[in-house]
Structures are given as structure tokens and as C-alpha cells.
Amino acid sequence: MAYALHFPRTLDEAFRLLDPEGTEGALPLAGGTDLLPAVEAGRWHPSALVSLSRLPLGTFERTEHEILIGGTLPLRRLEREPDIVRLLPGLVEAIREVGSVPLRHRATLGGNVVRASPASDLLPPLLALEASLDLRSRDGTRRVALGDFLRGSWETTLRPGELVERIRIPVPRPSSYRWQRVRPANDISQVGVACALASSDGRSPWRIAAGGVEPHPQRLPGAEAALSHEDPTPGEIEEAVHRAVEGSRLKDDRRAGEEYRRHLLGVLLRRSITSTVSRARTMGGRGT
């Protein structure tokens, strides 16, 4: 149960502490809201925790086409950041449903992505928003699309000794996140559906992702392809719902059964599409 706890003040120090050749089983600690109870319950046995709280990773930047969110920036900061509220409404909708306000004062976007919980409410919108990660290590920085970063339930392609420096999200993106839960507050969604509108380049402008599917939140390419333009017809929306439901393997666990989740996927996808369309109007069109 006992573990060492480190507070590196520089990235180099952190990389050394996280190095597999240095300390075995060292895990980075961001907000700790998911990791710490898992360790206390004996589900994880790190030999050391490397706190990221003293590192310069809590940055926030906005360029013309991107928002760059530092790995350790607390979620509550993000949901109150005017640029995010204005340019990424679908992400804000998801963040506001993570845990509770006191939890979001510490929980981070980087931590949520690295933990890669299959039930994460943040992964569907981040996937639909085509987020990518700047992963920093001793060897430099590599950029990975979130879809390539997720490998399975609780599994990512994060290498030992790597940290999430930034999450990059293209803006603006008319977007929305719709979900269903047993209890609205402080719970985890049974199904969550995120939609975002991107530039089309001749293909569909829709980016759609869902949680509550196996093995972890996924893009729904079939549904995306059914929607050829920004303002789909009711028939196209129904086709998207049909393809989403047909093309997904729904989870079947204590939160909800497979059949109910299938129903939810359709309902929530319709709502998310409709909401995104109306946002695209008020935001002045699609994103970049």
C-alpha cells in the first residue's frame, strides 16, 4: 500500500523519476481524483507517485485555429474559460458532468485522458473534436491523435516516462454532448454521444463519437458518413442513427444493459445532432 511521493519542480526531474529504469512502477499524479481511490482500494500498486503539481503544465493558450490545454489544468478552470465556452460548447457540456464542482477543482483533462477509463465522459467529445496530444518525454515531444492514443479499457500508448504536456483542439467547433445516467449529478453516463462540425474537404463535416460502447469510447464513422452536410434532413439523421446502432457493440454492465444502451445511443445521437446544427447557426458556421 505504501508508496513514495515525489514533487519534481522541473520536467527533467519528473522524467527521471518516471523513468522505467529509475523507479519501477512510478505513476504520474495529476488531480488524483480517480487514481488515489483506486490505489487506496488496492486496485493499483504503484511504488511511487510523481506529482505534477509543481510542474509548468497548467498552461492555457489560444491560437487562431487551436486551443491548447495544459495537461494539469483543472477541469473547473476549463469550464469557466470564456474561449472554451464560446468555441467548444460540446466539451464544456461534458466537463460540467464530470464528478462534482469540488472534484473538478482538482481533476484534470490530461489525467482523464491518461487514465483512459472506458466510462469517461470526456473521451467522446475529445474524439469528436479531433483532439490530439503533445506527449513530452526526455526525448522530446511527439504528437498523437487521441484516437491513436487510446488502446483499450484503461490502456493507452503512453510510454513510461511520458507526460501529457498539452491537449490540442481545433476551434471553433460547433459541438454538443448528450448523455443519460441513473443520477444526473456526480455519476457516470450509461451512454454519451458527442457531435462536432469540422471543415468538410469534400467528405462529411460531421465528427461523432460515443461512450458506452465496447471496448472504450469510439468514433462512429458509419453515422458520420450518413450525414453529408451541415444541416441534415430527418431522413439522413435516421440513417445515421441506424448505422450508429448497427455499427456499435454496446456495453452490458452494472450501469445499464445492452438493449437499453442501444436505445439510448439512438435517442442521444438525434439530440446531439439537432443541438449541434442549431449551434452551428449561432456560432456562424462550421469550424476549421
Partner: peptide, 25 residues
């Protein structure tokens, strides 16, 4: 486990769940 809020305190003026926070932080 962060599910009930009974342990809420303020850290630098903001609400935080003290059961999910390491003392040494």
C-alpha cells in the same frame, strides 16, 4: 471515494474533496 461531499474543504479558497487529496500536496 469522492462520491458524497461530506469531506469538502477549501484549498486556496476553492472547494476540494479532502478524501481525494494527498496531504503532502
Amino acid at each position: 471515494t469522492g462520491g458524497c461531499g461530506a469531506c469538502t474543504v477549501l484549498v486556496n479558497g476553492e472547494s476540494v474533496l479532502s478524501c481525494l487529496t494527498l496531504a503532502r500536496e
